[in-house]
Design a protein around this nucleic acid. Structure first.
Lengths: 287, 287
DNA sequence: ACGAAGATGAAAATTATTTCCTGCTTCTTT
DNA sequence: AAAGAAGCAGGAAATAATTTTCATCTTCGT
């Protein structure tokens, strides 16, 4: 009901027009030579400032170019569009979403919106980088360990303690018998109680945290299965681990705790839990 | 010679003033739950018929939906656009982009590498979505609060407790006087000690956690400045907050604790810390 | 149940777009 | 080189689209 009556009403709303050539920029170049003087002015401007034009009205454009509005409209119609609005829409489609300054660095002069965008972009970049360095085989290996684990210990200090905490909550909800500890002393004590059937996951961005390394060494001595989540494959922590899950967060110039290092830890944890869940549901042997 | 005069105002026409990325579809999903009935109708239709909408006028759309034109315009403005035309243009750009949201669903048949890729992709998508719903003005507001805060309290329960923990570590290193608490009872006690000059940040994905809401209410009564980090703008937590920082993680079909909900919390926290640092370094007055 | 806050649509006000008309230029033809 | 034809350009009127205002109605919280 809604659709039928609404559309047929006005002639201007004809849905499927200009099927043939919806590519304004190309078409402009095609007819450029045949355009009269004023319209050529319009064409020039549009080709140069397409991303401004799509936000301008006929009047804006006409004024900027010092031509009449009629000229702009005629220009659009000559190109084959019904009028200026249609031209603008197609131009916008043609342009696509601007992702221009994605990789640039933070500038104190930037306004908040830009800071936000750039910071988020860095997180995304870090996740992508992690995708590149994280070995899927290691993921499978760890999930295999988790599936047969009697108990899972999660250890992290400082910021990584937060990641451990989050991992703990996720795993709890997956039905994994697990515990978390962010206190260095207690960690070591707990690790001393780990058995061969247990999995000990140590999290440290730098892989250099003494407490975690010590804890992992203890776990290793107890023959527990040790897993490291770290950014550095040759770190002391990585040496203590049976399996290493590598993150790929770039160093940040600001402060050590700043930047997306935690984001990627969580991304890795998320993968573990997701894959665990899938494996739990389907009988083994796949993948 | 004629060039000089027209330029000053016209050329600027309207640099898209919208914050974040101009991704209408994501933004619609972000605010969908907060929309009134009629506007939700519009949202539904736009999500379903985006490629027709870009050729329709307000009148067309209003008729097709059997709502008033005012509603359509209000809908666009609520989304943050100046009006319908701007919305339409941005929508068109969005559509034009070839690789839009890749909501690849997980398939138990996938091999590990694919699972990893898809899971990471979901995190990236969530960060992008958050970029679309997070209001930079709110970020600035919160950082202003932080800059003049006597003390910052960070509260979260469960998984969000981990996020709070990470935020605490980051802020500590920025020299912010702060404390974190993940125990419901103690939280409330602490909040009862907050003063007018303090900032209380409550983190909860759903915004429904009773403990956090209670804690925030106490903080509000103490006239502390309250900040919420949540995915739901109309949640009880959001109501208790002077400023709301919105995340944009899509619901995940798996488990509540799964998915990138934590990742985006961290991304938001990261932005806070980054911008705080920049502001700290440069004398005020910018942006 | 009552009041306040908010949602909705009708219509008015504003703004944008298109058409129409006129004067002008340019090109062609002689 | 001059006259006519063709068609271009701009102003203004006409039309259409968009936004605001305002009165009414609904809903939510107390």
């Amino acid at each position: 009901m809604g659709r039928a009556n609404g559309m047929g009403e006005t002639e201007t709303s004809s849905p499927p027009h200009t099927f043939g050539l919806p590519i304004p920029l190309v078409r402009i170049r095609g007819v450029f030579d045949t355009l009269p003087r004023s319209e050529r002015k319009v064409a020039d401007y549009v080709l140069d400032h397409a991303d401004e034009v799509i936000y301008s009205s006929v009047t804006d454009l006409a004024q900027a170019l010092e031509v009449s509005e009629s000229t702009v409209v005629r220009f659009c119609q000559r190109l084959g569009y019904q009028g200026y609005p249609e031209f603008k829409i197609l131009l916008a489609r043609d342009l696509g979403t601007p992702f221009r300054d994605t990789y640039d660095t933070l500038d104190p002069q930037d306004d908040v919106a830009t800071i936000v965008r750039k910071t988020f972009q860095m997180s995304i970049q870090a996740v992508n980088d992690t995708l590149a360095v994280l070995n899927p085989d290691s993921v499978r290996e760890v999930v295999n360990l988790l599936l047969s684990a009697h108990h899972v210990f999660l250890f992290g200090c400082g910021g990584s303690g937060g990641s451990a905490q989050i991992a703990y909550q996720k795993m709890l909800r997956l039905g994994l018998p697990c515990s978390v500890c962010t206190d260095p002393h207690t960690q070591t004590l707990l690790a001393g109680m780990a058995s061969k059937q247990d999995v000990v996951i140590g999290i440290s961005y730098s892989g250099n945290n003494e407490d975690i390394v010590r804890t992992m060494r203890v776990a290793l001595e107890r023959q527990a299965k040790t897993v490291a989540i770290t950014n550095y494959p040759i770190s002391p922590l990585a040496k203590m681990a049976n399996v290493v899950l590598l993150t790929g967060a770039a160093e940040t110039p600001l402060v050590s705790e700043s930047g997306p290092s935690r984001v990627v830890q969580l991304a890795v944890i998320d993968v573990l839990c997701t894959y665990y869940l899938l494996r739990q549901r389907t009988p083994d042997g796949l993948s």
